[in-house]
Design a protein around this nucleic acid. Sequence first.
DNA 1: TTGTATGCGTTATCAT
DNA 2: ATGATAACGCATACAA
Lengths: 336, 336
Amino acid sequence: MRTSRPPIGVREVANLARVSPTTVSNVLSGNRPVSAATQERVRWAIDELDYRPNHSARNLRLQRSGIIALALPEVRVPYFAELVHDLARAARDRGYRVLVEQTEGRTESEHAVMNGLDRGMVDGIVFSPLGITREMFERRRGNTPIVLLGERILGADVDYVGTDNVAAAADATAHLIARGRRHIAAIGHQRGTGGTGPQRTRGYRRALQKAGIGYDARLVVRTSTYHHHDGAAAMVELLDRGVEVDAVYCYTDLLAIGAMHTLRSRGLRIPDDIAVIGSDGIDEGRYAAPPLTTVAPDKTAITTSALDLLIRRIADREAPARQLVVPHAIVVRDST
Amino acid sequence: MRTSRPPIGVREVANLARVSPTTVSNVLSGNRPVSAATQERVRWAIDELDYRPNHSARNLRLQRSGIIALALPEVRVPYFAELVHDLARAARDRGYRVLVEQTEGRTESEHAVMNGLDRGMVDGIVFSPLGITREMFERRRGNTPIVLLGERILGADVDYVGTDNVAAAADATAHLIARGRRHIAAIGHQRGTGGTGPQRTRGYRRALQKAGIGYDARLVVRTSTYHHHDGAAAMVELLDRGVEVDAVYCYTDLLAIGAMHTLRSRGLRIPDDIAVIGSDGIDEGRYAAPPLTTVAPDKTAITTSALDLLIRRIADREAPARQLVVPHAIVVRDST
DNA sequence: TTGTATGCGTTATCAT
DNA sequence: ATGATAACGCATACAA
């Protein structure tokens, strides 16, 4: 079994087919015309020896790896899992494979990603950051092409694809207001001003103001991450504050599902007692109890645009940076 | 900005530090002792030039890429997303990165994975197959180390990590029986005899038999995949068959959550009217309505064992193949 | 402790 | 249409 054969390279194939390595290479790449007869001999030899090109050598020569990295906080968060899925699909169609790099919120990892990982390991990076600042970006070393997702670095000269977080939050909140709710809570705020959290809080406040509803800080609950349990815990905290609440806008679907878990266990009816809207549009929301209303970005647009920008940037590093904003839409289900 | 500097290699660093490329290499790898003074000069030069080793070149030389592939049907299925997460974490600790290869159930993709993808692209593959047969394995070309997950190829000389599917199914069924249920359905069977589906059906039947409960084919529903909607649809079909049912064993948690969705929309109470148990132990189950009882494999054991086997196989391709069975346990929640 | 020379497997340039 | 040769950037065997 598993007998270790000698390594087969273009040379071995060339010898067997009685041609030069160059010709073998050309048969494979189609870079130069090769006569039909020669081509057949070469293909036969390739098959005979079960030759397979060596990726590393080809990379070294071509200065490209055919791999792009997708850097994100955690794959096990469904939104990111779906992102990996979509991007891997789109990438495959364009001849790329996807390496997954989890930052898990570590600043050190985010730095490493910004600085391009190892040289030659990937041709480009699609990066969904948590806490990248403009300063971090500008101190960036290495010139691996990179496209930022979700979190815009204001004023930075960098390719970016995302949604309008402020508008999305305002739309979500307005949706609840349109449903007749007046005591609307928000779950998912985070400290700082740059991240998506604060942006969403801004949209939330904007919608309240537009409707003439006063802002009550006790209705805004911070979370450290965006998992189920954060949403569940935040909802417990919110209820325990004793403020009147008849609706909740959650900054991610996972938070919303966690929050609904708490509501159910407290015997509260959704949406009768409290309406819930999430944000992300993950599949899990369809099967939640009740099915979750959510403000969903056009995910296909995100992945294909990100890939397009990245590939353009790989081809031309001097091209002007582009910022793309993809549309979002409210998917109404039973939770509101 | 983005000015394209000349490429920096060991040579450039060596020149600036007034040493040979060898010494630079040694400073980086620690393979040979280097005097403190020299070391400092080299490090200074590295920093000065912002030198970063070229991955492709190093790979070509060392015949290793530092990347392992995780091949699976779909990342967006939570069980697999959690697998990616865990494996990526474990891999990072051992100096590997993870490339995700989605087969999406295509036989052609599974073949490609079996045959080792491109030579030199990855050092090894962790493969969670859907429809690999023993014959496919034995015709396998290429000798990229591979570890199979979940689905055992009987009699094949291949490294493998998985659970005892028959026992897990029997335990799940027995759990329902212990809860006093007698009309137990099964959702998730698939055609054939080799896959995990048929194995679980076997365990299900075994438990029924042991309890003296007759087997009724109308209680077994096939699904083509393992998504929410398959579970929901299967449950609709099951209820429409008009057979008496007081419990359901679903072959994955996603199926179970989909099934519960149908039950809720039909106004059936869980577990009062129908108890539901799933299989996988995904996080989503905790927040389902009601929280889902499940038979969960020791996921940490799976990922770390798989990685151990793979690394062992990378180091020694002649080592005897090992089959590892990791334990499973029933996590009791409210759905039963 | 450090340096010189070679080759990993491939493709591009320059020749024929 | 095909071949000889060099070079991608690095790490090692061999020398000093």
